[in-house]
Amino acid sequence: MPNASLWSTDDQEINLSCLFGWNVIFCYPMTGSPGFSIPEGWVQIPGAAGCTPQACSYRDNYTELKRNGVGVYGISTQTSEAQKEASNRLRLPYPLLSDTDNSFSSALKLPLLEAGGLKLIKRLTLILKDDVIKKCFYPVFPPDKNVVEVIAWLSENQA
């Protein structure tokens, strides 16, 4: 993992190269927010829609992941304020990390999409053991079933 520190929804700076044990990082373009219009043509962009269902599926399976010693993080290029709103509204038990300057996505050369003048991370999921990427799911479809794939992979590969 690159030496990239990102602000979290619980007001901590998380250095992703310092994560230990098993961790899941799901990257997503953006969650919608009340009063904020999604970019024009959003639903026509392959892989753009579905961020909220994906985040909620990780929320709904968080207890199982934690029971198996797996940390969960969501990353987007949205501001910490937008992520805090989504985290509170959706009652997410795990932190969302803000990559507004694209330091994380640039360091890993992650695929991006542009919509409404915004540079957004395409949906993908990384499974880490300590600071090493062990598995990358890309593309991720359907978004709300990604957590099922992750749990299945972990059950076969987590030792």
Rank of each mutant, 00 (worst) to 15 (best):
N3L: 06
S5E: 13
S5P: 07
L6K: 03
L6W: 02
W7G: 04
D10V: 01
E13R: 12
I14V: 11
I14G: 03
N15S: 13
N15D: 11
L19K: 12
G21S: 08
W22G: 01
V24T: 11
I25M: 06
I25R: 07
C27A: 15
Y28D: 06
Y28P: 01
P29R: 12
S33V: 04
S33L: 10
P34A: 12
G35E: 10
G35S: 14
G35L: 14
F36H: 11
S37A: 15
I38E: 15
E40K: 15
G41D: 14
W42K: 11
I45K: 12
P46F: 05
G47I: 09
A49P: 05
C51Y: 05
P53S: 05
Q54G: 01
C56R: 11
C56Q: 09
S57E: 02
S57V: 03
R59F: 08
D60A: 13
N61P: 08
T63K: 14
T63Q: 12
E64P: 03
E64C: 10
L65C: 06
K66P: 06
K66G: 08
K66N: 09
N68K: 13
G69A: 14
V70E: 10
V72F: 13
V72M: 12
G74Q: 08
G74C: 11
S76G: 05
S76V: 01
Q78V: 01
S80P: 07
S80T: 06
E81S: 09
A82E: 15
Q83S: 01
N88Q: 11
L90E: 15
P93K: 05
Y94M: 02
Y94S: 00
P95L: 01
L97F: 02
S98M: 00
S98V: 04
S98Y: 02
D99G: 07
T100Q: 09
D101S: 13
D101G: 12
N102F: 09
S103A: 09
F104S: 07
S105Q: 10
S106T: 14
S106A: 14
S106Y: 07
A107V: 03
L108D: 04
K109R: 09
P111C: 05
P111A: 09
P111E: 11
L112Q: 14
L112W: 11
L113Q: 08
G116R: 04
L118C: 08
K119Q: 12
K119N: 12
L120P: 01
L120H: 01
I121Y: 07
K122G: 00
K122M: 07
L124R: 00
L124P: 00
L124V: 00
T125D: 00
L126T: 02
L128M: 07
K129H: 03
K129A: 03
D130A: 08
D130W: 06
D131W: 00
V132P: 00
I133T: 11
I133N: 01
K134T: 05
K134E: 05
K135I: 02
K135N: 05
C136R: 14
F137D: 04
Y138W: 11
V140F: 05
F141W: 07
P142A: 00
P143S: 10
D144R: 12
D144Y: 13
K145C: 14
V150E: 01
I151P: 09
A152I: 10
W153V: 06
S155Y: 06
E156P: 06
E156G: 04
N157E: 06
N157M: 03
N157C: 06
Q158E: 10
Q158H: 15
A159Y: 12
A159I: 10
A159N: 13
